[in-house]
Design a binder for these strands. Structure first.
Lengths: 227, 227
DNA sequence: ATTTTTTATACTGTATACAAAATGCTTGCG
DNA sequence: CGCAAGCATTTTGTATACAGTATAAAAAAT
């Protein structure tokens, strides 16, 4: 998905293979804008204005908005247009419960189905993340943290699971991104990750699920305190 | 003015385009057509033809297709248009694993959060379903069966959970619908449902989750044999 | 006869134009 | 001074037109 965006930046040089439709590009663009907070929750989206800003006409933009509405990032009110969807605290909490449950399922599946190489790749990510922690690089740490959680889900080799997990993840990303935790909590999170990696490498499904359970519950507490 | 809206919400949206946008109508229409098999998996969708059939122009139809593509019911190939998405056996199996996990989560939440009235309503649905079973009315049985499973999820009072559950459910509905099971398996399914209801009424979360687990695993086996 | 090239057709992708609805503002009246 | 009604403006909803691309069919060459 990200590669498509990169490729389209090169416009004409692209060969016929990965040419994406314009509305597809707009979807990715807008999704990023929403996740990164360029478009804020509750903000109304004016099609003419946004279209002009992006340099596209209303038609593909509207198609993109319908797509994002189905993803739940945008709210569509008939005859009144589109808004960036705003989530309540309960919504977020509910999503995190579901994400937690899905990662626990993924953990069990991954222990059974993951390849040794896949687990090794995750170990590499983990080690890199720890280095960023030690260097105090929050943003890099955060990104690798995300990749590890997504990676565990990917190891489960269950496309629909990865899809819905990604769907919910994209909605809470915006929130989690702002979560700055204190040094002792950060250290605790890293320690939890270490135990998670160990359980995965041992392919101990129940331990892994339990560790993820407490890690995600703690993570939610860590973030909640910042809202 | 307001009463009109309420009446429309309460009854059927017979007056096609009054409050909902046209693309919204088309989304619902097409979703039903796909789920009920009017549009078959792998079938290519020609915008002009389908639009003429539905009596709408291509613009709102295309918007509807984008929406359904995000739902995963339609596949969009750049420059080649839309197809009804076809799922592999593994896809279906993967979805059922996720659905099962989500219903188990819903079960645990429902035991803690459901109102007594909500559980009573589900009991009514269950009893009605049993009557349809005794009368041998497969279609009615099937519909109430679906409603009960959806109802358990609804009792969990977790909107995102209900949403993703419904998303996956809509994809497998088409498959499950054709599942004709023999009399002894049907009887077993009803017995499982009886135990599920009992556990829910007792608010015994672990028993309920376990019963749902075996019920859904069995259900999958029952359906798998028909594919 | 088979393969390749060319050409025609049909379909998708995007833009623009027009119609309907809603919002905001101004003006007139109480 | 406040409120309401009507008008103007803005914005969404839908249709249509045009351009680009893929597919299929037909013709030519090996």
């Amino acid at each position: 998905m990200a590669s498509e965006v990169i490729e389209q930046a090169g416009r004409r040089a692209v060969t016929a293979i990965s040419r994406q439709s314009l509305h597809g590009e707009i979807v990715n663009r807008l999704r990023d804008m929403i996740i990164e907070g360029d478009l804020q929750p509750g903000q109304r989206i004016y099609e003419n204005q946004l279209g002009e800003e992006l340099g596209v006409s209303r038609t593909p933009l509207r198609e993109a908005l319908k797509f994002l509405a189905s993803e739940g990032l945008v709210e569509l009110v008939p005859s009144r247009g589109a808004m960036v969807k705003r989530f309540s605290a309960k919504d977020i909490e509910d999503m995190l419960i579901v994400i937690r449950s899905m990662e626990m399922l993924a953990a069990r599946l991954a222990c059974a189905k993951a390849s040794d190489e896949g687990i090794a790749r995750l170990r590499d990510l983990h080690d890199a993340m720890v280095r960023h922690y030690q260097a105090g690089e929050r943003l890099e740490y955060y990104k690798l943290n995300q990749q590890i959680h997504t990676g565990i889900v990917a190891l489960a080799d269950n496309a629909p699971l990865a899809e819905v997990h990604g769907l919910l993840q994209s909605r809470v990303k915006r929130i989690r991104f702002v979560g700055h935790e204190g040094p002792e909590r950060w250290a605790a999170a890293v320690a939890e990750h270490e135990r998670i990696m160990a359980a995965l490498e041992a392919r101990d499904a129940e331990t892994l699920a339990r560790e993820l359970d407490v890690h995600l519950a703690n993570g939610w507490e860590r973030v909640k305190s910042t809202i």
